[in-house]
Write a protein that binds this DNA or RNA. Structure first.
Lengths: 364, 364
DNA sequence: CTGAAAGCGCTAACAA
DNA sequence: TTGTTAGCGCTTTCAG
């Protein structure tokens, strides 16, 4: 087994400074600085020579010194409440991707839950002195007053809502999912979710109501909400919830919308146990099913956490570079990704209904 | 939908400097510096006053300035090839945890695959000027020559092997899993893995051989190796592999060891389709099943990526603080976590065998 | 216990 | 095109 001893090879390589390079090249430090950063006002041959020497010496500017001189750290902070949750992981990856090759580094601040000690004063404030801008992953990652404080601090920042949050994007996603199912002809749906704000719920119900009248022209559309306790054991909770639901007397839903991959997996497993075929006997939809959902061939509504985070980071960078002409990040509407887990309900036969308006999955 | 506009409230809060605090407190900057960092040689009342004023002003030292003055950045770099993969996510979380409250920040370097452009010169070298030490997640994340270069650079670093790598820890885990199954009485095993180095394979076979003679005293122990292409679609690949295996004529294994959660899930699903009951008809084991594996009630061998990374980070910190008395991180041996997915093979009846030596799951 | 002063390594005017 | 010269905001001797 690898013995993770700290390797600290006491090398005689005290990192070369800009002066070493300047001396070796026979120029001033100012010229080296310009040459290395690709600024103008350096003769081509000089530049080449300096670059070669720097390379040979293994020179790289000290971030602290440069930062102190410029007042910029050339790094952005990413605040997240999780790195294990695939959604957040995907977002972090997006941010990292946006920074690649831009000579910016990414400082990760992991704030597991908001109940932890007064955090802004310590962690966030400290972070603010190390980064030029902040990308906050998840609308619930920071408390309201923390966001306020951020606002007041004047630090450029963007908050990206992620899965399961009480924001409109969540509602959008659920609506898109339900629309898909309604169009397939389902009239008895269940929505397994991890909790919905009152606002989202109302919006959702409104959306459902709209479909009930305009798409279906029937009041037959039924939507059962089932709350699944998230995080530890979402899968298990979802399994029990499904079993419970199926054990109830009366009619069963013909389709279930799941707020996450985990929940969908629970339903999938338990439906298998119950002898149901997917999608013939039961349609299952996911939301944000990037990794698991894809492997499971789950029809899903995806919201591109990766891309959204990448674009958030890009906006931040653009804002930092003073690019006033920055177009705001495109709003990625939730997009329908039809895979294998949904179909028209058995016996209905109709594959799709005329769409209510000219809305489709791409519409906002 | 949240419009992720960059908020940059042009606040009139130009971050206060140490001089502002010094002036307000009527002391010199030197005293403020000492007071804030909790150094001695400051009278208690003075200290309190300074702290209060700093607090009121929202002062925090500029990382760049402090870094330039001390030659330390107070941040460590975490190099990883993934943030979506739960294993790596868990490790990143461990590192973050170790840094919490220590006033160190974590700079994340995401190096997706080694095929990408010459990376050390750019990314890694640059990173080296921004951090005091490096925690490398995954033995395969850096190329051999990159590690060499790291070595030469004198930067303290630790490499932590993660899942699916051709290191001994991987072998350890597999061996532990197989031992468990053999002890349950299984004699026909399959090992679904994402590729094994020749060395690991030999070690594994040796381990199996050992069990064959000492634990079982029979040459009946059969081990089929099935290679599952990882990452995109591990689940799907695993399902097909299972189906194929089950379609083959002849005897079937009574237990399957899976190198990851994903693979195990594939087997689980397909076994369900085949009408097999788990664990009665088939035992399934996972490796490193932290999140998914847990929800699935999979018996697994866990290797504590989180803890290992946390301890790696701690060692690094200790080394940086010049703590020469640092005990090296405890070696977490892979540990058996028995859940619901394994049992004695049907018809065998015997629940366990006498153990070969006094080895148990805790042994190295 | 406190303060004055000399940098840390780089950048950014301004001169040359 | 290049060099000179001030700092950037903090830490850290070394005197007081």
């Amino acid at each position: 087994m690898i013995l993770p001893a700290v390797r600290a090879t006491r090398a005689h390589h005290p990192k070369p400074s800009i002066e070493d390079v300047a001396a070796a090249a026979g120029v001033s430090t100012a010229t080296v600085s310009r040459a290395i950063r690709g600024l103008p006002r350096v003769a081509q041959p000089t530049r080449t020579r300096i670059l070669e020497i720097a390379q040979a010496l293994g020179y790289a500017a000290s971030a602290s010194a440069a930062g102190l001189a410029t007042g910029k750290t050339r790094s952005i902070g990413v605040v997240t409440s999780s790195v294990r949750h695939p959604d957040y992981g995907a977002a972090v990856e997006g941010a990292a991707r946006a920074l690649r090759g831009r000579d910016y580094s990414l400082v990760l601040l992991h704030l597991p839950d908001s109940s932890a000690s007064p955090r802004f004063p310590r962690d966030l404030n400290m972070l603010c002195r190390r980064v030029d801008a902040l990308l906050v992953l998840g609308a619930a990652t920071l408390e309201k007053d923390e966001i306020d404080q951020l606002q007041r601090s004047g630090m450029p920042h963007i908050v990206i809502g992620l899965h399961g949050e009480q924001d409109d994007s969540d509602l959008d996603a659920a609506t898109t999912a339900i629309r898909h199912l309604v169009q397939l002809g389902h009239t008895d749906l269940a929505f397994f979710h991890g909790g919905l704000g009152a606002q989202s719920r109302n919006g959702l119900l409104a959306a459902v109501r709209e479909h009930r009248t305009s798409a279906l022209n029937a009041d037959g559309l039924k939507l059962r909400e089932v709350r699944i306790e998230d995080q530890p054991g979402a899968i298990r909770n979802s399994r029990t919830a499904f079993s419970l639901l199926w054990a109830e007397p009366g009619s069963k839903p013909t389709a279930i919308v799941c707020a996450s991959d985990q929940i969908a997996l629970g339903v999938l497993l338990e439906a298998g146990n119950a002898g149901l075929r997917i999608p013939e006997d039961l349609s299952i939809m996911g939301i944000d099913g990037q990794d698991l959902g894809k492997s499971l061939e789950l029809t899903t509504v995806i919201r591109y956490s990766t891309r959204r985070a990448a674009e958030g980071a890009q906006s931040l960078l653009a804002a930092l570079e003073g690019d006033r002409s920055v177009t705001h990040p495109a709003l990625w509407s939730p997009e329908l990704m039809i895979r294998q887990s949904t179909a028209a309900p058995q016996g209905t036969g109709r594959q799709s209904l005329p769409m209510p308006q000219q809305k489709n999955s791409k519409s906002v």
